[in-house]
Design a protein around this nucleic acid. Structure first.
Lengths: 145, 145
DNA sequence: TCAATAGTTTAGAATTATTATAATGTATAT
DNA sequence: ATATACATTATAATAATTCTAAACTATTGA
């Protein structure tokens, strides 16, 4: 979603009423240069800081999930104990920094096309995603292959 | 872990007392031909069925996590709402069937080596894993790239 | 414009997955 | 055999998420 766009219009387009909570969420999520990775808690914190009024946790959960269903954000599976979301909804790859728990997009050009030489009978591939776990170079080193 | 091995000895090797609960868990997890993917609930159900005695949920949680720390099993991040474990602890790739919620290993030879052309300064790669989501061919089709 | 209504937000309760606790039970070393 | 350290258990606690029902608000159309 481009910067500074008309969030009220965008919300109407997908059949959502442009309430002030939703418009504020759009600003926090989409009014930025780069892809944004967040957890529900991150979002509640940021919205609370930017609004004179408190926002309910349930509203943030509900609205994020509506946005997910409508394709505005996408959930990333990294850690089964926390839900991470991404404002980049295309299938793409990530670094996950195990020290800081930060997600970083991997540019499509920085990874070769993945070719799966086998398929599951009767099943179609929906997505192929790579997760590269990284950590500080001078500690916590594990082998990989 | 090979089939029909001495679980009591294996447990002792990593400093775990071979209680009947742990031996039973070993049998369920490792006494099989192929890699096994499971959730804690799967395991409780299977163990309960195979033992005359009930096993506590907490024991299964605790023991699975001890096994994980000791490198007998490995957690797989697929779905942020459920923890999947795998008896294949090497870094490898998976199909995830979105219809049945089943995990299937991808053989190393069925996927080309992944080459990441960029790195994060000061960070070392710990693992590279690919997740291929599949679903029934005649429904639920999404584009991928 | 302004009420009717359909949809939204909210606080708090409910649910689910997981972890901690404290009492009881058991494997092991001596 | 017995003491002791470690395990198991039922249950309580916690954390993340979802549900609920009442209050609130944006939209529609008279």
């Amino acid at each position: 979603m481009p910067k500074n766009c008309n969030f009220i219009g965008k919300l109407r387009e997908v059949g959502l009423r442009p309430t002030k909570q939703r418009v504020k969420m759009c600003e926090v999520l989409f009014n930025r240069e780069k892809t944004f990775h967040f957890t529900i808690n991150d979002l509640v914190k940021m919205i609370s800081e930017q609004m004179n009024q408190k926002i309910s946790l349930a509203t943030v959960y509900n609205t994020v999930h509506v946005f997910e269903k409508k394709g505005y954000v996408k959930e990333i599976s990294i850690d089964s104990h926390k839900s991470y979301f991404d404002t980049n909804t295309s299938a793409h790859h990530h670094f996950f920094d195990e020290d800081t728990h930060q997600l970083i997009d991997i540019d499509k050009k920085d990874i070769d096309k993945i070719n799966i030489k086998k398929n599951i009978p009767g099943k179609k591939i929906n997505s192929i995603e790579v997760l590269v776990r990284v950590a500080s170079d001078n500690q916590n080193q594990k082998k990989f292959n």
